[in-house]
Design a protein around this nucleic acid. Structure first.
Lengths: 153, 153
DNA sequence: CCTGTAAATTCAAGTTACTTGATTATCAAG
DNA sequence: CTTGATAATCAAGTAACTTGAATTTACAGG
């Protein structure tokens, strides 16, 4: 097998390890913080997006809207999030993450992000372009297949 | 300088979108197959990691041994896995994934994998090396922090 | 301006999955 | 051959999730 084919296989394999490691990290951190996995993923998305809605969180976690309601009740009671009225749609609510009430979370996530930034800093512009291109292509591919799965139901 | 910082930010952002898209794919596929998210992820771990015992699976998932028992009962009833006696330890069991009994799974996962392989084929050897290097560095970083979280408990 | 339909969220009742603690069987060591 | 630890399971109780209905608001067509 030539070296290019081998490299292709290495990339393929690396993407899987990337995914597995992310899952294991999530398991460890949610356990550490004392949240179940769904609750943690919810907080995680909120951290990325800043503000979200129960509908979006339902999609992200794969839970039903009813489950999201009780999950948000839990997170709100624990002061991880706040519900606010949506000024543009009086049916909806906006979910905000309370960053100050989660110093442990910030520290744990911040550590990984810091590590990632250090990795990124070691690449040239050219390489960064290659990496961004690959990551975006990967993401588009996953999205395409997700949509395909969801369509024929 | 500025464009490099911007590129770095793009990579950082792309890794997050990569993660989000993976989560949404997981939701879609587990729903499609009729497994809950936790069961699907376990099946995935069993397949990718070659995990073989309930004990090991419990460690990876953060579940208790009792939960793993009932989860394996579900997966076995649905014929996704098989329990076999461990010839080296009569207390234990070995878990095997039944690849043949899951054509739907194979087809769905195969689709994404095919797309990924097509993406990979468009890169030069040099670029592939860059990509592998980045993915591995990312994975190592996540693992390092996972271990750190698990250690001080 | 109405009216019907769809969407966002919540709620109540029933189901599923998880945890804890005990149980059985086996191992490993002295 | 006894002691302490480990692998898996089981039973009972708890926590989380789903389903389906209710409420409120949005929006499109007549």
């Amino acid at each position: 097998m030539d070296s290019k084919k081998e490299l292709q296989e290495q990339v393929f394999s690396a993407t899987r390890e990337y995914g597995v490691s992310s899952v294991l990290f999530r398991n460890a951190i949610s356990r550490k913080i004392g949240l179940n996995v769904a609750d943690w993923e919810c907080l995680s998305l909120l951290t990325l997006r800043g503000i979200s809605s129960p509908t979006e969180l339902a999609r992200y976690t794969g839970l039903t809207s009813g489950s999201v309601t009780t999950m948000l009740d839990r997170l709100e009671a624990a002061e991880f999030i706040t519900r606010k009225p949506n000024p543009n749609d009086r049916r909806g609510v906006l979910i905000e993450v309370n960053r100050k009430s989660t110093p442990a979370v910030g520290q744990l996530v911040g550590g990984v992000q810091k590590g990632l930034k250090e990795i990124i800093e070691n690449y040239s512009e050219k390489d960064l372009k290659t990496i961004v291109g690959f990551l975006n292509a990967f993401t588009m591919n996953v999205r395409k297949h997700t949509d395909a799965i969801e369509e024929d139901s």
